[in-house]
Every structure is written in C-alpha cells, then in structure tokens.
Design a protein around this nucleic acid. Structure first.
Lengths: 118, 118
DNA sequence: CGATTGGTTAAGCATTCACTTAAGTAACAC
DNA sequence: GTGTTACTTAAGTGAATGCTTAACCAATCG
C-alpha cells in the first residue's frame, strides 16, 4: 500500500470513503449525538458503529467526549478546513499548469509568424 | 459495507484515501502525463499504477485519452468542484446547527431572567 | 518483416476492512 | 446490594483491496 507518512488529510479522505462513515458525518453535521443515537437508524451492530466513530475521530473529522456513561460526538470544524485547504492547493497547481500552457502556446505564436497574415 | 447507492463524491473520497492515488493526482494537478511517466517514479509495477489510474478515472477525478499507443491522463476540473460542493454543504449544515444552538440559548436567557441584573 | 515500446488483461495472493458475536466495564436506577 | 443501560474490548470471518507476475495486443522502429 506504499504506506508513506499517512498525512491527516489522507485519513480524512479514507474515512469519508465509506458510506456508513459518510452517513455518520452527515448526521453529526446537523448536530451532536450519542453513540447509540447514531447507531439506532443504521442496519448494523453498535460495536460496528463504534468502530466507525473511532476511525472518524482518529482522522480528526469528529471529536467526542464522555460524561457519565454517554459519549457525545460532534463535528470537528478543523477537519473540514484541512480538506478544503488540500483541495484549494490542488486547484491552484492545476490552474497554474493551465497558465503555463497558455504562456507556452503564446510563445509558440510569437516565435512562428502567423500563417494567415504572413 | 452497507452499499447504498455509491454517490460519485464517495468514490472520489475513496480514491484519494490511497497514498499512491493521492500522489498520482498531485502529479497530474501539475500537468498531464502518460501512464508510464506516472509509473516511473513509483515503487511498483506498471499494471498496479494502471489500476490506480482506472480507479481515479472511474471516480471522475481524472480523465484520459489514448493517441497511438500512449494514453495521456489529466485532472478533471469537475471532480474538484464536486468535492468542494459536498464539503461546503456539510459546513453549511454545521453552521446552521450552531446558529440553532445560539438561538436556543438566547431563548433560554429570555425565559429565565438574568441573574446578575435581576 | 521481426523487435521494441506502451499499454492492457488475467490470475493469484497477502493484507486490510467491515462487519459479527460474546464478553467485559462502568454509571445510573431501584 | 441487583439489574439495566451505554459503551468498550476482543476475537473471528468473509469480502474487498493493493499488489504481483505472466501473458497479450497494437503502434512504432529498424
């Protein structure tokens, strides 16, 4: 798997690549919830949901806190920001690449005299 | 795995959850490249890279075109946009949830007379 | 033409992943 | 105290994933 350094944003992408975890995250973006509240509508066992929550939390997308015997989960704002930053970075590189292509083509035009008007 | 409907954005997240594919995508965001150019710096076989490229293309993050015997891959702009849209949607929901919480707390304040000034 | 290059397909294999059930543990209810 | 609730841990299983090597095919080269 070429396990090189596992950047946090990568664990976020991986976390959201699973439909269950995406559903959990969408639910939590509507407001905090306990583990069993989250598990209730899902067609799987509570330990399974708990494992998914652990993965989401390890990725930095959510955060949770235990009071008494109930653990309340909520979205971690920083997570979204990390992903947005990564995407913005790729977009910037890609747009710069397009610019370079434009400059290159312009330079080609300068070097070779235009056919129509020559 | 709760295989419900596999939204396109989900396949993108899943695609970028792998370090190799993330590296491929980063390379391509700097400009187009052929399959073997992409495979060259990576510590794995060409078929392996090819499979990763297929996954990236199936997710809609990249696009490729074959001329003669060389296939040229490039970033698909729409892919980034899809992911940004999804993230923006979650952020919006999350911020709305915070607003609701604020309103709720304000209502609580109105209902109960303030302690300090009462 | 035959040899090489660039990609593609196929089959197999080891690991990881998404579950499961069973068995804890700790907080609260009675 | 006993029982119930809410989570947690552990162990196991089948399927999906990330590779591999060994062909195979079409385009280009000599």
């Amino acid at each position: 798997m070429l396990n090189q350094s596992q950047a946090p944003v990568e664990r976020m992408f991986q976390a959201l690549g699973d439909p269950t975890r995406r559903a959990l995250y969408e639910r939590l973006s509507r407001g905090p919830a306990s583990v069993s509240e989250l598990a209730d509508p899902l067609p799987m066992s509570l330990p399974a949901v708990f494992q998914h929550l652990q993965i989401l939390e390890a990725s930095g997308l959510i955060r949770s806190e235990k009071r008494g015997r109930v653990r309340t989960c909520r979205v971690e704002a920083g997570g979204l920001r990390e992903m947005e930053k990564w995407i913005a970075g790729r977009r910037a590189m890609w747009e710069r690449a397009l610019d370079r292509l434009g400059e290159y083509l312009a330079a080609q035009d300068d070097a070779q005299p235009p056919r129509r008007r020559g």
